[in-house]
């Protein structure tokens, strides 16, 4: 009788445990489908219009009061720059840059690079001091004063955007595009780069509206665009998204990114951690007490072990 009771207890507790494990995991999956703030702003970047004049870089430099560049902003020799086998990247002194790519059998294409202001940013989720924030206006901003300079976000970002003030000895921090949040977006104005562009490569507006415009442009100009909006689905959707006339990988885009937010890779696991910490101690203490029920603990350790093994056999 005693044995049956124990088996029943074990079966019941195992089922209960499994049910408990499933509940938070399902919640985590539901949370992963966050599609951005409904009124969040975004920018549609139409690469077919960009002529590589770098006016946006100059406008960003002025607006964000960035240090003097190494070369004038009308110098196109930067398009040939290769560092560590790579084209230019955003730095702590340049939050946006334009690179030139030469697809086979097509005219050169220019690609503006800046923070894409993800709906569910990987940088934000990787930050253990909670320096990052996705604002309802759509910007991914960060508090420099909180940043401890761990550089987790630099590794987490699927677009390699956050840069680091390596030259600062005492207080190195992260630097990146903030959608001109402090000076413009907060008041509903478009960022400096968007406003400065002579070709209106970028269109500013509500992300949802812009997505309609993007698909409209593809539809109304048959044959002009690749039938894909880069950033509509990538890593859970980005605030800034792109149209192109050449396949995106030929314009330097990473086309292997998942459509799920980066945090989904670890969300299920992370949801289980608190449960493990709270339930497992009680559960296994219960098992231990049942397993050792009615057995004396008064004898020496060696002796009791021998006795237990004998019983098991």
């Amino acid at each position: 009788m005693g044995k049956i009771t124990r088996r029943k207890f074990l079966a019941g507790s195992a089922a209960g445990g499994a049910a408990l494990m499933l509940t938070p995991a399902q919640k985590a999956l539901a949370a992963g489908s966050f599609e951005g703030f409904p009124e969040g702003m975004g920018v549609l970047v139409d690469l077919t219009r960009c002529v590589g004049c770098r006016t946006c870089e100059a406008a960003c430099n002025v607006e964000q009061k960035l240090p003097e560049p190494a070369l004038p902003f009308d110098d196109t020799s930067v398009f040939d720059e290769i560092k560590h086998g790579q084209k230019r990247r955003t730095t702590d002194k340049a939050y946006t840059i334009v690179n030139r790519y030469e697809p086979e059998g097509a005219d050169p294409i220019y690609r503006k690079i800046q923070c894409n202001h993800c709906n569910e940013p990987a940088c934000l989720t990787s930050c253990f001091v909670n320096a990052y924030k996705k604002t309802p206006e759509g910007a991914v901003i960060y508090n420099e004063k909180v940043c401890v300079g761990c550089r987790n976000c630099m590794i987490a970002c699927p677009f390699h955007i956050p840069a680091y003030t390596y030259h600062s000895v005492l207080n190195p921090v992260i630097k990146k595009c903030i959608f001109c949040y402090d000076t413009r977006l907060k008041e509903g104005r478009p960022p400096a780069c968007v406003e400065s562009c002579p070709q209106q490569v970028m269109t500013f507006g509500k992300r949802n509206d812009l997505m309609k415009i993007a698909h409209d442009r593809i539809k109304k100009n048959p044959g002009k665009y690749v039938n894909h909006v880069y950033g509509e689905k990538e890593v859970g959707g980005t605030g800034w998204f792109y149209l192109s006339n050449v396949p995106f990988e030929e314009a330097g885009f990473d086309t292997d990114l998942p459509n799920k937010p980066i945090i989904d890779n670890v969300k299920d696991f992370l949801a289980i951690v608190p449960m493990v910490l709270t339930i497992w101690p009680a559960l296994f203490t219960g098992f231990h007490l049942l397993a050792t029920k009615g057995k004396s603990h008064g004898h020496g350790d060696d002796h009791s072990h021998d006795e237990q093994e004998g019983h098991g056999k």
């Binding site: 100059a58 406008a59 430099n61 002025v62 003097e68 560049p69 190494a70 002194k93 390596y166 030259h167």
Partner: peptide, 26 residues
């Protein structure tokens, strides 16, 4: 033609950055 304001904006012409020892970081 670029105006003086343009030269200042683009850091070109008389506003061209002087080559400094501190070349751009990574």
């Amino acid at each position: 033609a670029k105006t003086e304001a343009g030269d200042e904006f683009y850091r070109s012409g008389e506003f061209t950055p002087k080559k400094s020892a501190d070349s751009s970081g990574h």
